[in-house]
Design a binder for these strands. Structure first.
Length: 278
DNA sequence: CTCAGTGTTCAGTG
DNA sequence: TCACTGAACACTGA
């Protein structure tokens, strides 16, 4: 369930459970894919007895800064999440699927127990998530080349204009490019363009001043609002396209009754409303 | 049985 | 370097 808001929700959960605590036990599955070839013992050795100093995030990447390196980096892929024992998870996925309350949860990849009795788990059903160890926290030398984070690092409108200047990419693809805006995923990109009233197939170079301003405002706005409600879909405003795009039937319509179209852009299904986006 | 899916990466082309 | 495509990864749930 990971785009920026879900990752931020996970980070906060983890921060509350882990920061200031010492890791006293680690349970790590032998999964060379999710752990990028690392053996469970490597991971356990790196985490055991360490104190978590901070839980950080940039885009969809979350990492713990420990009192001593290396530091763990988490990426949820398509289906990852953090769970804290006794704390409500994000119950509603986009399609309204329920998360069960079993402990340890299904699809656990790593579990950590802390000196205060708390427990944190990362789950990952589809195994497209990754857990790595890095020598330095990613604050400076990035694990990957990430652009601005729309929650914590949203550029001013003039700076945004500068970032876009000279680029010719199709808008939907640009928003999805993590080197441009880190943390934006498929539904956020569509939501931003819907609220900005811009056709997702257009090129960024074709936007006039007003359109660029709307794009900037809605990118910031959508992300902030989603984070403000802890990524709970049932608390997203009813006017958001998000609520109406999943049925995907020929009869799909937005809040105002306008038909929703589906096209593939950059290999991803894109929902948009021709009546409202030019 | 088939297929889409909140994601990333890499190879290859222009 | 940029822009774009297609394939690969892996597996659940409809």
């Amino acid at each position: 369930m990971p785009e920026l808001p879900e990752a931020e929700f996970g980070r906060r959960m983890a921060a509350e459970a882990a920061v200031g605590r010492q890791i006293v036990a680690v349970r790590c599955q032998p999964d060379p894919i999710v752990f990028c070839g690392r053996a469970p013992e490597d991971i356990e050795r790196a985490l055991l007895q360490r104190t978590v100093v901070a839980a950080c995030r940039r885009g969809k990447y979350i990492w713990f800064e420990l009192d001593r390196g290396p530091h763990p980096v988490f990426h949820f892929g398509m289906t990852g999440a953090f769970r804290v024992r006794g704390v409500d998870p994000l119950k509603l996925a986009s399609h309204g699927k329920q998360v069960d309350d079993a402990w340890p949860p299904r699809f656990e990849k790593i579990g950590m127990a802390f000196d205060d009795g708390g427990e944190l788990v990362m789950t990952n059903a589809r195994r497209l998530g990754r857990i790595r160890l890095v020598e330095r926290p990613l604050s400076e030398p990035p694990l990957v080349d990430l652009g601005f984070d729309p929650l914590t690092d949203m550029p001013s409108l003039p700076a945004f204009r500068g970032l876009v200047a000279g680029r010719t990419a199709v808008l939907k693809s640009l928003l999805l490019d993590q080197r441009f805006s880190a943390g934006v995923g498929n539904w956020i990109a569509d939501e931003v363009l819907y609220q900005a009233g811009i056709d997702p197939r257009r090129r960024v170079s074709s936007l006039d001043t007003g359109e660029l301003k709307r794009l900037h405002a809605r990118l910031r706005g959508v992300v902030r609002q989603a984070v403000a409600v802890d990524a709970r879909k049932d608390r997203f405003p009813r006017s958001w396209l998000f609520h109406y795009r999943w049925g995907k039937g020929a009869d799909a319509r937005d809040h105002g009754g306008s038909p929703i179209e589906f096209v593939e852009i950059g290999g991803r299904t894109t929902a948009w409303v021709p009546a409202r986006q030019r």
